[in-house]
Write a protein that binds this DNA or RNA. Structure first.
Length: 604
RNA sequence: GCGCCAAUAGCUCAGUUGGAUAGAGCAACAGCCUUCUAAGCUGUGGGUCAGAGGUUCGAAUCCUCUUUGGCGUACCA
C-alpha cells in the first residue's frame, strides 16, 4: 500500500541507492553489449526483464547481488556462465577492479568501495546532524493526522497507547520527509455513554471531586462509568434514564450541561496528564459536541440534492450499492445525529480551518467499514478532497487470554502500566547502583519506561493485531527499547572520555580507509541506508520500519564495540576513524529514536 | 450468509520489487565482568512458513480453493 502522493518532481537522494543504481546501469549495459556480440535480438533480451539488484544474505558474500537466472534462456547459457562472461567484460573493458567482483554461482556479487561511501556518509551526517536521514519527499504537503480520540467517560487504556504511539510516530516520520503536519485530537464528549458516568455520579458520588478524593480526574469519572454498569444490572431503568439525560443535554438543560462541563473537564485534565507523561501532544483539538450540528446541516443539504433519501419514518439513508455495500442510516428518525454524522461535520470543519493535502485517521481496524462509508458520503456530497482522506487502520491489542473487556475488568489502564514500567526501571537503576551516575533517577526511569513502551507497541507491523504480554512488556533485556537506549548511553559515555583526550588528536583527519573490518563496513552501510527507511516509513505509514532498523543498527554496533577497542585502538588514525564512526552511529540512533518516541539518554 | 484481515520456532514478532542455507528476542542449556556501562557479548538446541493445487528457471512472498482465528456487516461510538 502506498499513499496518494506521486514520486515525480520529488528529489530525494539516497546514497546507497545511487550506488546500487550505478552498478545496475553498468552491468545492464554490459549485458546488452554481450547480447549484441552473440547476435541476440534486443527484444528477446528485453523479455528477460530489467536486471534486479539485491543484497546478499551474508556480508562476506559482497554488498550487492545481481541474480542472472532470467537471462539464461536468452543467452542459452547457464546463469553462472553469464556471470563469468560479465566479469570478464567488467574487468577487461570497464576497468573494474577484479577484487570487487565476487561471482557466486548464478549471482554476480559486487563488493563496494565502502571507504568512499563512508566519506559521503560522513559529509552528510556532519552537515545535516539532527536532520540526517530526512528527505524532501513530502515537501510542501500539508498533512493532518488524527489520533487518540478519547471518550470523556473513562481514562486511557492500552489501545489508546498503541494509537498514540502510532499517531506520534507517523507524524514524526511524515515531518522528517518534509511535510507540514498538524496533529489533531477529537474528543468524544457527546453521546449516551458520556451520560452514563454522569448519571452514576449524580446518584452515587456525594459530590466528591478529584481533589477531595485524591484521584486523577479521568479515573474518578471512569469509576462512575463502572458504577453505572453495576447499577444497570440491578435497575433495568438505568439505560432509559441515561437516554433521558441525553435528551436533556441536547435540549440545553442547564443542570445537565454544567455537570457535563465539570466532568469533561476532569477527564480531559487527567488525560492531558497522561499525554504529558507519554510524550503525546496535539496542534489542535476538535470536540464532537461542536461538529455534530454541521454534519447534520450537510446531511439535510445532501437530502435536497438527492444524495440521500428519506424513509417513511423520517430517517435519512444513503444507498451504498455503488461501492458494493448495503445502505446506511445517516440521520435518526428523531432527527438526531450519529457517529457518522458527527464525523462528516468534523472533516468539513477541518478542511475549512486548515486545508490539507491529506488527512490520516489513525483508528483501529474494526472501524474500516465506518471510514469506507464516511469517505464515500463526503465524495457524494461533492467535497473534492474526499479522495485525500486515509484510514490508517491499525490492529487490535489483545491480551494473552484474549480480548480486553471492560466488563470483565481486563482492560489495561494506561497510567497503571506506565507507572509500573517506571518503577521497574527505577528498581533496575538502584539494583545496579547507578543513581549517582544517572542523576535524576525519576526522570530517567520515566524515559526508560517510555522507550520500552513505545518500542514494544511500534515494533509490530501497524496493520496487524498484536498480543500484549505484560511479562514481556516489562522486560528490559533483549529486543527492547532500553536495549536501544543503552547503545546511545554507552556511546555517550565513551564520547565523554573522548572529549578529555581529543586534543591529542587535533592534527589527525578522518581516514575512512582504515575502517576495513567487516563490522565497520556493515555499520557504514547501515548508516547510509537510514534515509531510505525514513522514506519507506512515510510511504507505508509504518513506524515498524524504523524500529527494526534501529534494532539492526544497535546489534551491529553492540557486537562491534564489544570486540574492538575504540579509544584504545592501535593507532591514532584508527582511533580517530573509529570515534568518527561511533559519532555517526550515535547521530543516527538519535535521529531514529526521535521518529519512534524513544527518549535519548546520555546515561542510564 | 456476505465483506475485510490474518495464520512463520514452545511464546512474541521480523522477513524488501518473488531469489542463495527462512531470521531475531523471550524461554532452556553452556560460556564471558581487575578490559570504552554485563540493561551487554558468544555458543547449543528448536521450522511440513496452516493445508492442497497453480503461475515461475525459482514461492513464506503472487493466484485459486480448503481449514482455523479475528473484525465488521447497529437508528452504539
Amino acid at each position: 500500500m502506498s499513499n496518494e502522493f506521486e514520486d515525480n518532481d520529488v528529489e530525494y537522494i539516497v546514497m546507497i541507492q545511487q550506488v546500487k543504481e550505478q552498478w545496475r546501469q553498468l552491468i545492464s549495459e554490459q549485458l546488452v553489449l554481450l547480447a549484441k556480440e552473440k547476435s541476440i535480438d534486443e527484444n528477446e533480451l528485453l523479455k528477460a526483464g530489467p536486471l534486479s539488484v539485491q543484497i546478499p544474505p551474508k556480508p562476506e558474500m559482497g554488498d550487492l547481488a545481481f541474480p542472472l537466472f532470467p537471462f539464461a534462456k536468452v543467452f542459452r547459457s547457464s546463469p553462472a556462465q553469464i556471470v563469468s562472461m560479465l566479469k570478464e567484460r567488467l574487468v577487461g573493458v570497464c576497468g573494474v577492479s577484479e577484487s570487487s567482483i565476487l561471482p557466486a554461482g548464478p549471482y554476480l556479487n559486487i563488493r563496494l568501495d565502502v571507504s568512499s561511501l563512508a566519506r559521503d556518509v560522513y559529509t552528510r551526517v556532519s552537515n545535516e546532524k539532527d536532520s540526517y536521514g530526512h528527505t524532501s519527499y513530502l515537501k510542501g504537503k500539508r498533512i493532518m493526522v488524527e489520533f487518540s480520540c478519547p471518550n470523556t467517560n473513562k481514562p486511557l487504556h492500552l489501545g489508546h497507547l498503541r494509537n498514540d504511539a502510532i499517531g506520534e510516530s507517523v507524524s514524526a516520520i511524515l515531518k522528517a520527509n518534509g511535510a507540514e503536519v498538524q496533529k489533531v485530537n477529537l474528543i468524544n464528549n457527546r453521546g449516551v455513554h458520556i451520560c452514563k458516568s454522569m448519571l452514576a455520579y449524580q446518584k452515587f458520588s456525594d459530590g466528591e471531586t478529584p481533589e477531595s478524593a485524591g484521584i486523577k480526574g479521568d479515573h474518578l469519572v471512569g469509576k462512575y462509568y463502572v458504577r453505572f454498569a453495576q447499577w444497570e444490572k440491578e435497575d433495568p431503568s438505568a439505560t432509559e434514564q441515561a437516554q433521558q439525560m441525553l435528551k436533556k443535554w441536547e435540549n440545553g438543560d442547564e443542570e445537565v450541561l454544567s455537570l457535563w462541563n465539570r466532568m469533561n473537564g476532569w477527564t480531559i485534565d487527567g488525560v492531558e496528564q497522561t499525554y504529558k507523561k507519554t510524550g503525546v501532544s496535539f496542534d489542535a483539538y476538535y470536540y464532537e459536541s461542536d461538529t455534530y450540528m454541521l454534519g447534520k446541516d450537510n446531511i439535510l443539504k445532501g437530502l435536497e440534492n438527492g444524495v440521500f433519501y428519506k424513509e417513511e419514518d423520517g430517517s435519512v439513508w444513503i444507498d451504498l450499492s455503488e461501492i458494493n455495500l448495503d445502505k446506511k442510516v445517516v440521520l435518526r428518525k428523531d432527527g438526531t445525529s450519529l457517529y457518522l454524522t458527527q464525523d462528516i461535520g468534523t472533516a468539513i470543519q477541518r478542511h475549512e480551518k486548515w486545508p490539507f493535502d491529506s488527512l490520516i485517521y489513525v483508528v483501529a481496524s474494526e472501524q474500516s467499514y465506518h471510514f469506507k462509508v464516511l469517505f464515500y458520503v463526503l465524495e457524494k456530497l461533492g467535497y473534492e478532497w474526499a479522495k485525500d482522506l486515509h484510514h490508517l487502520s491499525y490492529g487490535m491489542v489483545n491480551l494473552p487470554d484474549g480480548k480486553m473487556k471492560s466488563r470483565e475488568g481486563t482492560v489495561v489502564d494506561a497510567d497503571d502500566l506506565f507507572d509500573s514500567l517506571t518503577s521497574l526501571a527505577k528498581q533496575e537503576i538502584i539494583g545496579k547502583a547507578r543513581e549517582d551516575i544517572v542523576g535524576d533517577v525519576d526522570k530517567v526511569s520515566a524515559s526508560i519506561a517510555l522507550g520500552a513502551l513505545n518500542y514494544y507497541l511500534l515494533q509490530t507491523t501497524t496493520t496487524k493485531d498484536m498480543i500484549f504480554n505484560p511479562d514481556d512488556s516489562i522486560s528490559f533485556s533483549g529486543n527492547t527499547g532500553p536495549y536501544l537506549q543503552y547503545m546511545g548511553a554507552r556511546i555517550s559515555s565513551m564520547l565523554k572520555k573522548w572529549d578529555e583526550m581529543k586534543h591529542d588528536f587535533d592534527g589527525i583527519e578522518f581516514d575512512p580507509a582504515v575502517l576495513d573490518l567487516q563490522e565497520e563496513r556493515e555499520l557504514i552501510k547501515q548508516i547510509a541506508l537510514f534515509p531510505s527507511l525514513v522514506l519507506e516509513g512515510a510511504k507505508e505509514y509504518n513506524p515498524s520500519v524504523i524500529t527494526s532498523y534501529l534494532y539492526d543498527l544497535s546489534r551491529l554496533f553492540s557486537r562491534y564495540y564489544h570486540d574492538h577497542a575504540v579509544l584504545k585502538a592501535q593507532s591514532s588514525v584508527l582511533i580517530k576513524a573509529r570515534v568518527t564512526l561511533v559519532e555517526m552511529v550515535l547521530q543516527v540512533l538519535k535521529n531514529a529514536y526521535a521518529l519512534v518516541g524513544i527518549p535519548f539518554l546520555e546515561s542510564m
